[in-house]
Design a protein around this nucleic acid. Structure first.
Length: 557
RNA sequence: AGGCGAUUGGUGUAACGGUAGCACACUGCCCUUUGAAGGCAGUAGCACAAGUUCAAAUCUUGUAUCGCCUGCCA
């Protein structure tokens, strides 16, 4: 699943292509990615980022990064910075970085214009009354008593709102549309509210802030965005989006909605991710189990794999839940091509090579990537005492088990074929050690007259380095943690999603730099953690395990 | 007096009136100094009903099911 060069042909790209062909906006294409800086980006945002930036690129257009910072309540510079880092890491760069807050003055002027044209009014109803007057899904709302106040009065009040003459929540500016509209968003939506909050960019310059609806389309218009792509929940807002543009007579950006991404065995809503962090269910926003970009980055997911995944799930209007296995496939696919191979043993079983001279140490050569000659090779020490994986030995097993068994032979990866002659056990009958003999004629050579099928990994006991490892499993133990409305999603958090253990690894692994990823042969892909690794002492995160068809087969039998 | 949108194998998608294809997952076989990767094969699908048409996944209507909407959030 490498990133293909031919472009996808989803309905949005078809629409953009048709617009270009028709000469709309002179064939110009411009998009934007508009996050609110109130949280960390997650895999769902990655889908939107890829869509917007890729479309701009494919059609020779521009894509801006625009922070939708109209509500200072939960917004901060920390998020502004983290979002930029995540987007760059994903592999994208913006034409311009914009802030809705840069348009506050213009927005205010436009609000004045709508008041003057009789399309907006200052309402003094309380929040509770506004709700009550709005009506319900099946009943029309009713007009506010302030709805038909004179234009001049609204004008004066709105100016005074800005001047800070009224308390928070005392009044709002509303669009005058239709309180009986079947679309709730058209029942005189709020355009401005009074909030005495410090804004991360404009400071205390304003005490009134525009709403999303009165900001987004105008921001698109100011920047000249031709295609304003957003998720399905804004479908109901499109009539409003168009209404403001039409009333204001500004550049007609067009909004198109697509389904957001959902993933099995996880949650992606900001609120729920926050709950996981604040409830201590994970170590933080960048916990490797989190579907955040920072979490996936820390876990070792390559940016290219995430892009590839986003391309694979496509863009539609059908709400759906993608299988996390598809994401994992994209990760393995990328890592299989790029990650150097190494050897490490998770559950060591000592093996003494009886016919190997006591002090003899040789170096064998291991290829870094069998599928990529250019990846080169490294040397591995081989000596009398080695460790193999406990599960690679069975005293007795059928022929399906082609690893080491008593009296049987197996290939040590990159080294010799050995034969198990004797099994040493302790008083409890637990296997403590294997005595094996080496077939000296089999280094990088197959024996004559017999075929040895199994290959297992190993490390030299005297040369192995011990390193901490964290194994991650799915964050939730059910496919759709949000599906059961009667139960809180937290009930489904997988108690075994994190396992801390250690590995014995080949010497070269001690040199792994934080953030680097390799494959532990026959086990999985691991990266050196960026937070907890020290020079010469990596702490490994298991990015994803290798596919294991033997485990399935063994389990089935 | 509700509105808007959606519905194609287990999952995610393609098709734009003319043989339902791809990927993931799953199953079997081959290959292999990673039981990985790779190769080959296989299982499995148009929500339902009417209508238009020589011909419907595709157009029309109805039904069902699901999603979103009653923040001074975005």
């Amino acid at each position: 699943m490498s990133e293909s060069t031919d472009s996808p042909t989803d309905f949005i790209r078809q629409k953009v292509a048709a617009d270009v062909a028709a000469g709309k906006h002179g064939g110009r294409v411009q998009t934007r990615f508009p996050p609110e800086p109130n949280g960390y980006l997650q895999i769902g945002h990655a889908k939107a980022i890829c869509l917007n930036f890729d479309i701009a690129k494919e059609f020779g257009g521009l894509c801006n990064l625009r922070f939708d910072d109209t509500n200072p309540e939960k917004e901060s510079d920390e998020f502004v910075r983290a979002i930029q880092d995540d987007i760059r890491w994903l592999g994208y760069d913006w034409a311009k970085i914009c802030y809705a807050s840069d348009y506050f003055e213009q927005l205010f002027t436009w609000a004045l214009q709508l008041i003057e044209s009789g399309d907006a009014y200052v309402d003094e109803l309380s929040p509770d009354d506004i709700r009550a007057y709005r009506g319900t899904l099946t009943e029309a709302g009713k007009n506010s008593p302030y709805r038909d106040r004179p234009v001049a009065e609204s004008l004066g009040l709105f100016q005074r709102m800005r001047a800070g003459e009224f308390e928070d929540g005392k009044m709002v500016l509303r669009a005058k549309i239709d309180m009986a509209h079947p679309n709730m968003n058209m029942r005189d939506p709020v355009m401005y509210r009074i909030k005495r909050l410090h804004h991360h960019r404009v400071g205390d310059a304003w005490c009134i802030y525009p709403s999303y609806d009165f900001t987004h389309g105008q921001s698109d218009a100011i920047e000249g965005v031709t295609h304003s792509l957003c998720s399905l929940e804004f479908e109901d807002h499109r009539p409003l989006y168009d209404w403001f543009i039409q009333k204001l007579g500004i550049f007609p950006s067009q909004q198109t909605e697509f389904a957001r991404l959902n993933l099995t065995y996880t949650v992606v809503s900001k609120r729920k991710l926050r709950t996981l962090v604040e409830g201590g269910h994970v170590m933080g926003w960048n916990d490797p189990r989190m579907p955040t970009l920072s979490g996936m980055r820390r876990r070792g997911y390559p940016a290219a794999a995430i892009r590839s995944f986003c391309r694979a799930v496509g863009i539609t209007k059908t709400p759906s839940t993608s299988d996390i296995a598809l994401l994992e496939h994209a990760v393995r696919d990328e890592l299989n091509r790029t990650a150097p191979r190494r050897m490490a043993v998770m559950q060591p079983l000592e093996v003494e090579l009886t016919n190997w001279p006591e002090d003899k140490v040789i170096e064998v050569v291991g290829h870094n990537n069998p599928g990529d000659e250019s990846a080169g090779s490294r040397k591995l020490p081989f000596a009398k005492r080695i460790f193999i994986e406990q599960e690679d030995f069975r005293e007795e097993a059928n022929r399906k088990f082609f690893r080491l068994k008593k009296g049987g032979e197996v290939r040590l990866r990159h080294a010799y074929i050995i034969k198990c002659d004797e099994v040493i056990k302790d008083a409890n009958g637990e296997i403590t050690k294997l005595l094996c003999s080496v077939d000296m004629a089999t280094l990088n050579k197959n024996p004559e007259g017999r075929k040895v099928k199994g290959v297992i990994h190993w490390v030299s006991a005297d040369h192995a380095r011990e390193a901490p490892v964290r194994l991650f499993d799915r964050l939730f133990s059910v496919e759709k943690p949000e599906a059961d409305k009667a139960r809180e999603f937290l009930e489904f958090v997988n108690p075994d999603s994190l396992t801390a253990t250690t590995v014995l690894c080949e010497p070269s692994l001690a040199e792994m730099k934080p953030g680097e990823t390799c494959q532990f042969e026959r086990i999985g892909y691991f990266c050196a953690d960026t937070e907890e690794s020290n020079l010469g002492h990596p702490v490994f995160n298991r990015t994803v395990g290798l596919r294991d068809s033997w485990a399935k087969q063994d389990q089935a039998s």
